Simulated scan of single mutants.
Amino acid sequence: MKIAVLGTGGGGRAHAARLLELGHDVYVGTRDIEATLARTEPDMMGNPPYKQFLADHPGITLLPFADAADAADFVINGIDGASALKALTAIADRLTGKVLIDYAVPYLYNPQVEHPWPTPWGVMPRLDPCDTDSLAEQIQRALPQTKVVKAFVTQEQDTVVNPKAIGGGDHTMFVASDHADAKQTATDLLKAYGWTDILDLGALVAARGMEMYGHMHAAIGMALGMGNHFGVKIVR
């Protein structure tokens, strides 16, 4: 299949590399190709320059967001949560009729809050929207002709594309959408990645809980020690 991954961060790289390994045609979208390829220093998460990633993964095509989306059968959104809605709205016409799998967390970094939560990387980001709305629902309202599904968001993306790295793969992934075929697309991809326990949470409104879980995931990660990846298992 032809699959677009929007975003060049660590999560997007994990999906692009795994999709290429699975034999798909992979198109990676970025805001500015020249700027992306001109970077010579690691990004804020320590990922090496994207030019190096492309050299290590021949076959991946780097394009502007709109062209990557236009080339694909379906799209994975890895644009950071603070920028995703604006960036996707700008290319709405290229996403018409397509499935968009969104894993962004709507984090606002360096927030000015009354009771900050200190973390090893600074103050815990603030979720916006939160509780009464979700980023996924905002995207769906802005792109009514696109079939949005929330998935992948409750794990590090390295684990999403390789679930067996944790507990032999015996943990749970979640999907939510207002479109049954969108959920099936996400489910089929998760099975190709190696997931065997996929829980359908129902309509896209469930994305609120999935996004808010980001704080709990961070808390568990800090308790276990940063870098010690883990999975969550729903015991029936």
Rank of each mutant, 00 (worst) to 15 (best):
P48Q: 11
D170W: 01
G167N: 11
D93Q: 10
L224E: 03
C130F: 14
N110W: 07
V28W: 07
M1V: 11
H57N: 15
I79E: 00
H217L: 13
G221Q: 09
A82W: 10
V149D: 13
D133Y: 07
G46E: 11
V235R: 14
D73Y: 02
V75E: 01
G214L: 13
H24R: 03
E137Q: 15
V105L: 04
G214Y: 05
P120H: 05
A66K: 15
G231E: 00
V153K: 02
L189M: 15
P58N: 04
E114F: 11
W121C: 00
Y50P: 00
G169P: 04
F230K: 07
D102G: 03
M216V: 13
P125C: 04
P125T: 08
T172L: 06
L204Y: 09
K98N: 02
D102Y: 07
L88T: 03
E41T: 13
M173P: 00
H217D: 01
Q145T: 13
A151Y: 01
P42A: 00
D25W: 07
L201K: 03
L19M: 04
K164M: 03
I60V: 15
A218G: 13
K183L: 10
V113R: 11
T146H: 05
L199M: 12
E211I: 06
P49D: 01
A71M: 04
T187S: 09
T132V: 13
H229R: 15
L143C: 08
H215A: 13
H15W: 15
K183T: 01
D73G: 15
A72I: 08
P125R: 04
M45H: 14
I139W: 08
D67Y: 02
D73A: 09
Q112N: 14
S134C: 06
R18D: 08
I33V: 14
S134L: 10
G59C: 07
R39Q: 15
Q112R: 12
R31E: 12
G194F: 06
T119Y: 00
D181M: 06
A90P: 08
A14S: 14
K164R: 13
A55I: 02
K233I: 01
A55E: 15
R31D: 06
G10A: 14
G214V: 09
L190M: 15
A71D: 00
S177M: 07
A203G: 08
M222W: 02
T146Q: 05
D102K: 00
T61L: 10
D43T: 08
M226C: 08
T132P: 00
S134P: 04
A38M: 11
A219C: 10
D188H: 09
D56T: 06
L100C: 08
D197I: 06
G231I: 01
G10W: 10
S134V: 07
T119H: 01
Y107Q: 04
A35I: 01
Y107F: 15
Q157V: 07
H171N: 05
Q112D: 14
